Computed example of a mutant assay.
Amino acid sequence: MYIAILSVVAIVAAFLAVRLALPRTDGQVSVQRLVRCAVIAAVYVVLCLVLAPFSYGAVQVRIAEALCLLPVFGAEYIIGVTLGCFLANLFGSTIIDVIFGTIATLLACLVTYRLRNLRIKGLAIPASLPPVLFNAVIVGIEITLFFTDYTAMSAPVWLLCITNGISVGIGELISCTVLGVALVKLIESNTALKRIFTEK
């Protein structure tokens, strides 16, 4: 029941935010683009909440992060994924994670969009690396400074930041470089899916 209510809230919030944020062509926002963004934001939230034990904390494999590769198919996904991350952190984490996690996702999606045409052996591997790097650095530092009692530990803060960053980065590699790249390949190799994800 809780997940269902949050899902409805996420869809409505995503729909309204995307309606305001998407660039307009001839005074109109494409209905397809609007719906895609709202649905992706909601899917991100639902995946995080349903898989909550894996979605939050220093050791995490946030399956929803695979969606960070969707900007490969259009700039509108930057909004959808970032909004989804914001709402997922708002519902399931702390205000610190709402701020820093959302910033990391936004930056990652922006750079992923810039790398959208690069391929290694036909795979969107370069586009999968920004989420790994931004989350490893930003969330790694966040976890160390705000959620670790580093004053009670003998290791220096910089070493704890690196350790937490590596932990977050490994989870992001699984989510983005494995699952996300596979998702992009699936969409690109299926005509019907590609039309759904790219139709203007």
Rank of each mutant, 00 (worst) to 15 (best):
G140L: 04
G57P: 03
C48H: 04
V29P: 12
A124R: 02
T144M: 06
F91M: 11
L179G: 08
K194L: 00
L106F: 15
T94Y: 11
W158H: 03
V157Q: 02
C176K: 07
A155D: 09
I3R: 06
V132R: 03
L69N: 02
T148G: 00
V72G: 01
R116G: 03
L173Q: 04
S154A: 14
L49P: 01
A58P: 01
L34E: 14
G101V: 05
L6F: 00
A52M: 03
A182S: 12
A192W: 05
E142S: 10
F134C: 14
V50H: 00
A88E: 12
V61H: 05
Y113H: 14
M153F: 07
S175K: 01
T191G: 03
A108E: 10
S93G: 00
L22T: 11
T105M: 13
K194F: 01
C85E: 05
Y44N: 13
V43P: 03
L173M: 12
T144Q: 01
T82W: 08
L87V: 10
I125G: 01
V184N: 01
A21I: 13
T105Y: 04
L22N: 12
T177G: 01
L34I: 14
A10D: 09
V12Y: 05
C48A: 14
C109M: 06
L22C: 12
N89A: 10
Y44I: 02
R114F: 10
A52N: 02
A13M: 14
V81S: 10
A41P: 09
L47T: 05
S167A: 14
A64M: 09
V111C: 05
R195D: 12
L145G: 01
Q60F: 02
V132T: 10
V29G: 08
L67M: 13
P53C: 00
Q28W: 02
L193N: 03
K200W: 05
T198Y: 00
I40D: 00
R33M: 13
Y77F: 15
A88V: 11
N164H: 13
D97K: 05
N164A: 12
V59S: 06
F147K: 09
V35R: 12
A66T: 10
Y56C: 06
V81K: 08
P131H: 07
T112P: 05
G101L: 04
L47K: 04
I11D: 00
N117A: 06
A10P: 05
F91V: 07
M1K: 11
T94C: 09
L69D: 04
L34N: 14
G169D: 09
Y113E: 05
A136D: 08
Y150V: 07
L51S: 06
I79W: 15
T82N: 11
I5T: 13
R33N: 15
A14T: 13
C161M: 15
Y77C: 11
R114H: 04
A127N: 07
I187T: 07
